[in-house]
Write a protein that binds this DNA or RNA. Sequence first.
DNA 1: TATGAATGAGGTTTCATTCAT
DNA 2: AATGAATGAAACCTCATTCAT
Lengths: 210, 210, 210, 210
Amino acid sequence: MATTKKSPRWERRKETRPSELTAAALELFVEKGFAATRLDEIAARAGVSKGTLYLYFDSKEELFKAVIRDSLLPALAQGEELVSGYPGDTEGLLREIVHGWWDTIGSRPVGGIPKLIIAEARNFPEIARFYYDEVIARGQALLCKVLRRGIERGEFRPFDPDVMVRIVFAPLLMRAVWRHSIDVCGVAAVPADVYLKEYLELVVRGLRNT
Amino acid sequence: MATTKKSPRWERRKETRPSELTAAALELFVEKGFAATRLDEIAARAGVSKGTLYLYFDSKEELFKAVIRDSLLPALAQGEELVSGYPGDTEGLLREIVHGWWDTIGSRPVGGIPKLIIAEARNFPEIARFYYDEVIARGQALLCKVLRRGIERGEFRPFDPDVMVRIVFAPLLMRAVWRHSIDVCGVAAVPADVYLKEYLELVVRGLRNT
Amino acid sequence: MATTKKSPRWERRKETRPSELTAAALELFVEKGFAATRLDEIAARAGVSKGTLYLYFDSKEELFKAVIRDSLLPALAQGEELVSGYPGDTEGLLREIVHGWWDTIGSRPVGGIPKLIIAEARNFPEIARFYYDEVIARGQALLCKVLRRGIERGEFRPFDPDVMVRIVFAPLLMRAVWRHSIDVCGVAAVPADVYLKEYLELVVRGLRNT
Amino acid sequence: MATTKKSPRWERRKETRPSELTAAALELFVEKGFAATRLDEIAARAGVSKGTLYLYFDSKEELFKAVIRDSLLPALAQGEELVSGYPGDTEGLLREIVHGWWDTIGSRPVGGIPKLIIAEARNFPEIARFYYDEVIARGQALLCKVLRRGIERGEFRPFDPDVMVRIVFAPLLMRAVWRHSIDVCGVAAVPADVYLKEYLELVVRGLRNT
DNA sequence: TATGAATGAGGTTTCATTCAT
DNA sequence: AATGAATGAAACCTCATTCAT
């Protein structure tokens, strides 16, 4: 009574599944927002059935949280490492960080998360708070350290680094946000390299001492 | 035999109603996003019944469009006027524009629209396009003119104004966007005047010739 | 202080209004059925406002009843008169009645009422009952009298006139019903005169003695 | 340790469900008409929840179409078969058809469809057209063939069979229509066998040659 | 008397969630 | 572990009815 074992109706992949699901969810949440994304679609894109989602996540909201959480871990540590042992001048460090952010985050699907957070922060204060503490605050602290380093070494003029960090990061962030919202609708975007070049030129001149 | 003047169950306000409704809708759309805002809530906040909304707008989407449309017209013309006949140096004009924008838009409910557009652009391409053409393009053209003026008068160094305009405006826009998203969740925001001062300092130094 | 009397906003026509309203309502009820007819439409077709309907009828249902009631009075008496004093043979009387019915009812808007009754009888049992008692029963009694006359005079073969009356009347009624339902959708209908001729031929041959 | 077999909250019946749903819908549509029938009721009568309807039909209108479609296919083929190979005289064939129609359609729930179509034709021209092409036209063609057979064999007198078919079928159809409309409201109906006997007598005498 | 803006109950439809298979 | 049929709470929207003007 041997059951012929041709293409089983499903496989168990307990380890790999969750990240496949959050990956699919990320794409859709970024595209359409939280509310407008149906679980059917996420399941379909991940190649599983709707019910399967509930094997890994208790609710749509928990899935959302997982999406946000999962997409941070790799991105942050990388940046913190870079800063801690940088030997050269601060302007160079800043350029490094900016390009690094663009290459690993801004230009990738994860780059859609800021848009998502902006859109849903008020509906999910808990997530917003979590995101603020774990990502924004850490990211700002990172960049702040760089700015302070510049001031201390006499490369940058004096200013309040806690305020300046938000200003300096804004054009970078905005570029990623727009890429996932208005740019989609046929608006011609400025190429990334051109944008980053002009951006860095403005910032370093704006921060430079004298 | 004074007639007892019981407060009537409703009043007729054919003229004023639409703007009352869009005002209420704007607040809620900004707060919760388009999809998460229920018509019940909008009606309640405007002090009318749900059905009344349909006397003035054919659908939730039409209401959304009206909200966007109504909040632009007054705001844009004002800025265009300011630029056209400005006598002083371009740095002063830039400062004027920035403070003007903050006072009439950024610090008011209308300032929530960018966040709203960012959140809903992909679900409402038509609106995104409309917003791009009528607001973003016009706004960028406005600021671009200012930048070009600075270059031509030798006040600003040479750069591509079409690219720079996006970079320069980003921190301002971002401030408004955050104010309506993450800031709400207990995050201590930098005071506007401090932010604007540091921002302008960065920008004018970054643009200045030599 | 003479008020200039140019085109007053409305006129009072208490006498003529109700029948104008039921006339408009009849057309629409026949066209679309009771539920699918909106009071707005009735008001619009009658050239009044929606509120005006409520000056004359307590509810949509009452209006419906009035429509049914009003369209009977003239039609029935006429037929009863015809029968009572007819001198000739019964076949001729039958032909007379059939053509009379077609000319005054079947071919006119009122001819849509049977379709309306058929459609709504189960939702308005009270009306159905009323219609049965006042129209169908009286109509059947009328025609029954004719059939019985034919039998008694030896012109018609013996049969149960109470049953036969329904059978004989059906093709006539059906023609009116279809005219207001399926015929509307581009189906080519048989001309009335051809239909009536064949119909009468079938019936008189079918009833005739030997 | 027998497993207590509590009745489950629901069962899966992918195969049988659609026809159960259309059966319930048919009953209610016939009873109350399309617009006046609430999906709640249909679901309740079928013993499912409202949402289940949408698993099988995209909309109320699609359900309506399915109801019509499903109740035709079996009924029509049967009649066409009967006619094609009938050996005896045409009068006998006619009697056979009439009784067959009554037994399989007229006296069953499906017999309510004509009433339904009559009521909704103007609101759903597409359905009306479909019903005309697939049912009425085919049915008329069927009966027409019979009439023509009678004429050709010299059993029936000469007449236009395309016109006569409508007339001959009307009393039969009307009986079914009334059964589902006015008869429900306490009106004493003539027993079917009596009605059919008198009807056939009228018709065969009316058609017969000499 | 006549209007039409305002109401709100109730309809169709959607979709996150559950659970029999 | 995986499925997807079934659920039912809301959401948007309609429209008969009311009532301030």
